[in-house]
């Protein structure tokens, strides 16, 4: 690991330790935040008892569906829009301001349309993730070196082979970035939707525990989400860096 990596580990560990000390010393009240070690213990017991397994499975299933939908739709739409420059120019300002629209205010509308269940949650997650994938697909297709396309033409490759052997590999790093963002955004969308209004899932469980003053369960689930998302993002971030570095060589 690099010097900065070690330093980062020290900083994060230090922050957790500081929190632990502050909680144990009573500077932070137990009702506001339990010590990290207590949280971890609660989480272990919760996972071991299996009481949260159904909710965790449900949320992960929703996220997975939203991620698949976002990546597929975003990729297909990106390729289609890239092929039509005029449509693209017209859509450009909308894509750039897309994330300014606070999508959760649409969530109640979706519940009215789809009913209370997994469907509106997956849709919200997809709405959140799809445009990140779309924008990065456009980006990737824009940056295919001209010379590669010319080479393909010189060799007389048909459109399908050009797409598979030249365009796709050359745009791959950007597609990866898009997928990475789509995953992060789908998590945010799905969990927030469950939190606001739903009848199952991790987000719902946290809101439910909060309303019932069940701090042990609430913090355990929060810790679970934080650890899960952080590890996932860290893996994707490292992987992305490696792909980008290979590209530069």
């Amino acid at each position: 690991m690099s010097w900065a990596g070690w330093l980062r580990l020290i900083v994060v560990t230090g922050a957790v330790l500081l929190l632990e000390v502050l909680c144990r010393a009573g500077v932070i009240a137990k009702t506001v935040l339990p010590a990290p070690s207590v949280m971890a213990g609660d989480l272990y017991r919760l996972l071991a008892s299996g009481a949260a397994s159904a909710d965790i499975g449900e949320t992960l299933g929703n996220v997975a569906m939203a991620v698949i939908a976002s990546i597929l739709l975003g990729f297909v739409a990106g390729v289609a829009i890239h092929a039509m420059p005029r449509v693209r120019r017209a859509l450009d300002p909308f894509l750039a301001t897309y994330y300014a629209v606070p999508f959760f205010v649409f969530y109640p509308v979706l519940i009215v349309i789809f009913g209370l269940g997994a469907a509106p949650i997956v849709v919200i997650g997809t709405l959140f993730g799809v445009v990140a994938m779309l924008i990065n697909t456009l980006n990737g297709l824009d940056r295919i070196p001209r010379v590669l396309l010319k080479t393909a033409r010189v060799h007389g490759m048909d459109p399908v082979r050009t797409a598979l052997m030249v365009k796709l590999p050359s745009a791959a790093p950007y597609l990866f970035t898009g997928a990475k963002l789509a995953i992060a955004y789908c998590f945010i969308g799905v969990i927030a939707a469950e939190f606001i209004m739903s009848s199952s899932g991790i987000g719902y469980s946290i809101a439910y525990a909060f309303n019932n003053f069940d701090n042990a369960r609430m913090y355990a689930l929060m810790l679970f989400i934080i650890v899960l998302v952080t590890v996932l993002n860290a893996v994707l971030f490292t992987w992305e860096r490696r792909i980008m570095q290979r590209r530069r060589r």
């Binding site: 992060a184 998590f187 945010i188 927030a192 971030f237």
Partner: peptide, 23 residues
């Protein structure tokens, strides 16, 4: 040192932290 930490904070579903903020 800070960049990866910030990036992972950015992609965290922060709504899960809302109860802590309310408390």
């Amino acid at each position: 040192v800070a960049e990866p930490i910030l990036v992972s904070l950015y992609s965290l579903p922060k709504i899960t932290l809302y109860p802590v903020i309310l408390l």
